[in-house]
Nucleic acid binder design. Structure first.
Length: 424
DNA sequence: TCTGGGGTCCTAGGACCC
DNA sequence: TCTGGGGTCCTAGGACCC
């Protein structure tokens, strides 16, 4: 029989930071979100100090200092690279793999004749630790929902060494009675509130609920969740990721933005990144949206967005920059303390097929090909000689609005100048 | 002073068709 | 006084995920 396992890196970002700087091992470490906004990862030592997930940094700064906690800004170049290494290693030891997020993968694995997958799991866990220095947890079940639940148990039962198989455990019912409803995958704020009001407080109580009741309240989503929890596969296993339907680049500003010129620079910088992303994904955008808003924590709140359809779908930075300028003018209002701006590429389609507009006056296909070669050349130069080697004039400025990253670690695994030096 | 970023899926409701 | 039935497609917004 085939089982599904969920494998994830424990406190992934914090573990990556400890990995490139071993002096952090055994010490409390937290990693902040972009713009040094919130705490998004904690080492076990930081967790033990009562530092909670999602806490705004400015609120906990004093506490962190008092406890001598190491603080790091998020370093996605590092985490992305470590993630790739992890996924490659997992793929070598599993039948099929579905990369679910930067630090998680579902894998399919055949059960051996004696049904016991624990030896496989122990071996894999040791191998990852030895090869990458990353601690992982492995949860095994019959469906993704069960694998998620098993992974939670793997992390929270101290005696199981980061591995839990729902199929080889006779005390499941007792254990599931101790799992709070909020911990079940797919149960969010709204559903957990409804459950609590109805006296459904644990994973086991949800497991035993009448499915009609859940269906009438939460529709097909609720029913699927329940069946998955019971081990019936409803969510497909995706070995090949589906192409993206939209791609977004947005950032909070390091300080409020009030001028059209600064908003334009920020939006343009996001367009440049988003266009690069599209080209990496071999996709063209059929429409783009530009948005901005003031801080949701201050009144009055202002938010505005504008969308335009492209006559011919494109991933050409020049074309998208031009389109975004008109939109930026539309959403700008003076005297607003803007806190964030972003762009969303929509109606994405593969570069394999280009549907041109019947009514539009076209560039010749020769022109389009020339632009394509230009974009490719820019991408290659930036890849080879570093980001922004070739930049767009509209993005070049002092960038006072750029995000805060005061505690950034080095890109020791992706930048040649940051490589660690070993003295012998 | 200061509160992240990037997604997917589902549903309801409106516009439109014959 | 009085106006059907059956369908598709699109969009906005909600809920949830990491």
């Amino acid at each position: 029989m085939r089982a599904i396992a969920l494998i994830d890196g424990n406190n992934f970002y914090a573990s990556c930071e400890q990995n490139i700087d071993p002096s952090l091992l055994g010490r409390p470490v937290v990693v902040l979100s972009n713009n040094d906004g919130c705490i998004v990862a904690r080492s076990p030592e930081a967790r033990a100090l009562g530092i909670s997930m999602g806490e705004p940094y400015f609120k906990s700064r004093h506490k962190l200092k008092r406890f001598n906690v190491i603080v790091r800004s998020s370093n996605y170049a590092l985490y992305g690279d470590m993630s790739q290494r992890l996924m490659r290693l997992l793929a070598m030891h599993c039948k099929n793999i579905e990369v679910y997020s930067i630090d998680e993968a579902f894998v399919q694995i055949d059960r051996p004749p004696d049904q016991d997958l624990l030896p496989w799991a122990h071996h894999l866990r040791a191998l990852v630790h030895q090869s990458l220095g990353l601690p992982i947890s492995i949860g095994i079940g019959n469906s993704k929902g069960q694998a998620k639940l098993a992974n939670y148990l793997a992390k929270n039962i101290s005696t199981c060494a980061g591995i839990f198989d729902l199929n080889s455990n006779r005390k499941n019912k007792e254990l599931l009675k101790k799992v709070n409803i909020e911990e079940v995958w797919g149960v969010g704020h709204k559903m957990s509130h409804w459950c609590r009001v109805r006296g459904i407080n644990t994973a086991q109580e949800l497991h035993d609920i009448n499915s009609h009741e859940l269906r009438s309240k939460f529709g097909i989503v609720g029913v699927r969740l329940l069946h998955e929890l019971r081990g019936e596969v409803c969510l497909p296993f995706k070995v090949i990721p589906s192409p993206k339907e939209q791609t977004c680049v947005s950032r909070s500003f390091g300080r409020p933005v009030t001028s059209l010129e600064e908003l334009r620079q920020a939006v343009s910088s996001h367009i440049v990144l988003a266009s690069e992303k599209l080209r990496r994904q071999n996709q063209l955008a059929g429409a783009i949206t530009v948005f901005t808003h003031t801080s949701p924590f201050c009144h009055p709140f202002y938010k505005q967005s504008a969308t335009t359809q492209l006559n011919t779908p494109s991933n050409d930075t020049g074309v998208l920059l031009t389109a975004s300028w008109a939109l930026t003018k539309k959403i700008f209002q003076p005297y607003r303390l803007l806190s964030k701006a972003g762009v969303i590429m929509q109606k994405l389609q593969s570069t394999d097929y280009l549907q041109v507009n019947l009514l539009e006056k076209h560039n010749s296909s020769k022109d389009l090909q020339r632009r394509e070669r230009l974009m490719k050349t820019i991408d290659n130069l930036n890849k080879r000689y570093g980001n922004k080697t070739i930049n767009w004039a509209v993005c070049i400025s002092s960038q006072h609005w750029d995000m805060r990253r005061k505690h950034l670690s080095h890109s020791k695994t992706t930048h040649i100048i940051d490589l660690p030096i070993v003295y012998s």
